[in-house]
Structure formats: structure tokens, C-alpha cells
Write a protein that binds this DNA or RNA. Sequence first.
DNA 1: ACAAAAGTGTTAGAGCTACACCCATGC
DNA 2: GCATGGGTGTAGCTCTAACACTTTTGT
Lengths: 231, 231
Amino acid sequence: MLEQYQAQVKCLVALDSIIFGFDGDELKLLLVKRGIEENDVTWSLMGGWLRPDEGLEESAARILFQLTGLTNIYLEQLYSFGAPQRDPVERTVAVAYFALINVNDYQEKISDSYEAQWFSMHELPNLLFDHRQMVDMAIRQLRYKATQHPIGFELLPEKFTIPQLQKLYEAIFATTFDKRNFSRKILSTNLLIKLDEKQKGFSKKGAYLYIVDNTRYQQQFNSFLNFISSN
Amino acid sequence: MLEQYQAQVKCLVALDSIIFGFDGDELKLLLVKRGIEENDVTWSLMGGWLRPDEGLEESAARILFQLTGLTNIYLEQLYSFGAPQRDPVERTVAVAYFALINVNDYQEKISDSYEAQWFSMHELPNLLFDHRQMVDMAIRQLRYKATQHPIGFELLPEKFTIPQLQKLYEAIFATTFDKRNFSRKILSTNLLIKLDEKQKGFSKKGAYLYIVDNTRYQQQFNSFLNFISSN
DNA sequence: ACAAAAGTGTTAGAGCTACACCCATGC
DNA sequence: GCATGGGTGTAGCTCTAACACTTTTGT
């Protein structure tokens, strides 16, 4: 049986992460400039190679850290891509992960010392290989997940307003919602705790700030994870 | 940049397929006997190695054919598994696919000349490596998909009855449904065409046979595929 | 005082759940 | 004629979608 292993061709395994961010207004995508191409400027997802001692998600997290300094990002596996010619240099199977972060929480870390840069989802540059396909798939998955559970909280500051949350969902789905129905639906989840503070400066009236009820949120999130992944 | 490729460690890539079948009564899983272990009898999913010139799904289909003779099975990618020690012999990343077939349509092909065998989902043997985890995840995915679109048609003969379809969904979800609500819901999709024939032999009264309205079904299925995969 | 955004309630329709009886046939 | 599984309708409830006016406050 061991010969069966030795007879096999090995190949490179890459990890590519699609990092979405929200800046309060628009949905953004984090990309790094790619050095390979000379004439055409091409951008790439957060990508790198699997090391012998790493699990897949662990590797994606390490690569993300090396490229951006970001840590403690919840990465979710999206899909694996393995068309024989997808990387013209050498046969590579890519496992794609995606994540959601709040742009403002991480902006300094990223722009300081790294080559990574945020792009509006509406103005994406040319992407390497099949990365565009990965992004399209991730946005679909993001939309699906957003209908299933309130993942949007990850993308906002700790204290946020209902109108901010609505803007986020409108950015994810590229549509608009009725604010009365939206707030009713969100509040009916009982995941939000209303504070006495109001957000000032943006509107004249000011909107009430909310925080996530973390006890309840963790419960829901865990049952969602149990549904999706195994055990 | 090329050195970056050469510096990387390559690893084996395996494809494992979880094949579900329905025999009219129970949900089953297709497994092959695994030669490695001597004392303990261990069974394995339909697994094999990626070849240099193959895409992932293509490879999974080729492996399935070699182990069972099955062709033209719609395989859907499930998840990739890459824990460093998941295969104790050598580091392997496994991409898992799953599929649904009608046991009766394929039974002869399989049992004749191959080592593959159907197991009731309630009586699964010990499985190789992390295959049990893959199966658990696949059943969750199957349930999810079954709520989203009527994937169950794949598992039934061309002509089938509403009670048969109900049994199938009850097997997938390991529960029971109210037959009035079930038939109303299924018929409201307008995907079924009622025939003048009745199924004889099983019940005394006999149940009306239906076929899938393929035009409508393809439409729905395609929009579902577009949602899940890319482009 | 007015402009800009926040906040809030009602109603009609659709879809879901729960539930019970009659029908056709083989034995 | 009776046992077995097949077929159907209704009523209450919940959820959703559509819709407009008042409040607050910075200018």
C-alpha cells in the first residue's frame, strides 16, 4: 500500500483569502500588489503556500498575518480551486478562505508597513489567475451567510447604530431596505442592546447606539457553526 | 518570483467522494473496503489521488468510476481537509465531493465487479482517517440543499409517487412530515407532472405516479448552481 | 424656520402548522 | 368487510411587505 503513496504526483497547495471590509459606507476588498507581471498591474488576494506542518486554516491565518499584520480574524473556508492551468507557472491547488473585518479597526496596522490595500467592490482592479472567480463566489457566500445569521456585526465598531447596520446590509446585498421593516427585523433577534448614548456628528438628531448582546450572539453563532461544520 | 515556487514543499492531494443513495426506504452510503488495516476492518469513502492533468471534480469523477463503474454522477464540492496528521502515512490534503444517486438504478453495476458496498446511514462501520467527519458534514450539506431546492428527485426512479418522495425527505432529515402539508408544498413548486398511471403492488389503493417537469427543474437548478458556484 | 436623518405602527396578504375524515383496493 | 395506505380541505397563526408622518437638532 505504501507504494501507492510513492507513485503519486505531488503538487503545490496554496491558500488564498478573500478579506472583506466595511468602512461605514461601502464594502471593500483587501488586495496586495503582485510582483510577477511587469506591464499589466495585477493585484492578488492574500495568498501563500501551505507548509508541511500547518493545517489549512492555520496556514491561511499565518499568510494573512505575514501580508497584513492582521491576527485573530475568523476565516471560513470557501472552496478549493484546482483547474490544471489555473496557475500557469506550476500546478497548484488553491484552498480559498474568506473573512469579514471592520476596516477602521485595522486600517493603521495595514497601511503602515504592508503592501495591502483596500479596494471598493465596485472598482476592483485586474486580479491574478482565477481570483476574480473566488471573489465572486465569496460575495455570494457572504450574502447567503448574512441571510442566515447576523454576521454583519463583525464589520461594525463595537457601538453602532441601526442605520449603520442597515447601510452595511445594503452594501452586502447591493440593494436598499425599508428602514421600518429592517429595524423591526433586526431588533426582533434580541441580539442588540440599546445604549443611552446617541451617535453625534453625523445626523442632526443623532441615532441611538447599540452593542451586541454577546451571550446570545455566541449561542446563535455556535449553533450556526455546528450546522455548517462537523462534529 | 520563480524561486518562490521552487522553495515550496509539495504535498499529495486526494479526492474523497461521499456517495449517498436511496433505496426507497433508507438513506445509504457507498463505501469500499480498505486494504491497509489488517486486524480492524476499516471502510473508506471513494478516494484516490489527483493526477497532474486533472481538475478536481474531474479527478473525483474518474476515481468514482474506477472504484464503482459509475459515470455521469453530479458531484458537488463539499470541503477540503488538511490537518497535518489526517493521513498518518503521508501529508495529504483531501478535497471532498458528494453526490446523490438512486441505489436501484446503479445496483447491478456496482455489486458485480467492484468492492464497493452500500451501508445504511444508521449502521456505518469504522471509517478511515477523518472520513466520518466528512460524512457528517455531507449529511448536513445534503439537508441544507434539500431545503433549498428539490434535490431529492435525483434519488428516485423516473416515475415516483408523492409518498415515496416524502419517505426520501424523511430519510434525509431523519424525521416525519405531515402528508397533507408535504404534498401541498411539493406540488406548489409546480415541478411535478401527475401521470394517469398508479403505482401498483405496494399499497392496495395505489398512488399516482409523477415525473419531474424537466424544463422547469433545469431552470431552477441552474439558478441554484449560479448562486452556489461562480460566474 | 428649515433641512436632514431618526424613529415609530398598522394593515393586508401570503405562507405555515395542525388537524380528521373518506377513498380505493387486495385480501 | 376490513385493513392498509392514499388522497384531500380548513381555520388560526405568524411572518412579511408596503406604506407616511412626527421628532430632534444643527444650521
